[in-house]
Amino acid sequence: MNNDFRKKEGTSGYNTHPLGTDARIEFKLAEIDPDGNSTDGIIRVYANDIDFEENEENWLFDYLPHYGYWNIQEYINIWVFPFEPNLLLGQSSVPKVDLPGLENSVITGTTGIMITTPHFGTSDLVGGSNLGKTLTHEMGHFLGLEHLWGREENADCMAFDDYCEDTPIVSRRTGGCSNAPTSCNGEIALTQNYMDYTDDACMNMFTKDQAERMRYVLEKSNTRKSLITSSSINRN
Rank of each mutant, 00 (worst) to 15 (best):
G144E: 08
T110H: 12
T108E: 13
E146K: 14
H147E: 13
L99I: 09
T134F: 01
E152K: 14
L148I: 15
G109A: 03
E103D: 12
T110P: 00
G127E: 10
M139Y: 09
K96D: 06
H147K: 11
T136W: 08
S105M: 11
Q91L: 11
M114H: 00
G140F: 09
P85I: 06
I115D: 02
V106W: 03
E153I: 12
L99T: 05
E152L: 13
L135G: 06
P95H: 11
L145K: 07
W149T: 07
K133S: 10
G144N: 08
T134P: 01
S92H: 01
D98V: 01
E152D: 11
E152W: 08
G112Y: 04
V97E: 03
H137F: 12
F120H: 04
L131R: 15
G144T: 10
I107P: 00
G132E: 06
L148R: 02
K96L: 11
R151I: 12
S92C: 03
G128N: 13
G140W: 06
G144V: 10
L131Y: 05
E138R: 06
S105Q: 14
G112Q: 04
K133T: 13
H137K: 10
W149N: 13
H119M: 07
N154Q: 13
G101N: 05
T117W: 04
D124R: 09
T117M: 09
D156N: 14
L87G: 09
P118C: 11
D124Q: 13
F120E: 02
L145W: 07
G140D: 08
T122S: 15
E138M: 09
G127N: 14
N104G: 00
L88G: 01
H119P: 04
P85N: 05
H141L: 09
H137R: 12
W149F: 15
L145D: 08
F142D: 00
E153P: 02
N86T: 05
D98A: 10
P100K: 08
A155W: 03
H141M: 08
E103H: 06
L88K: 05
L148G: 03
D98I: 01
Q91A: 12
E146C: 10
A155H: 08
L143M: 15
M139H: 02
P100I: 10
A155G: 13
F120C: 03
L87A: 07
T108G: 00
F120T: 03
N130Q: 10
R151E: 14
M139L: 15
L135H: 04
T134D: 01
F142N: 00
T117L: 12
G109R: 03
G150P: 08
M114A: 14
D98M: 06
E152H: 14
I113P: 02
T111R: 06
T117N: 06
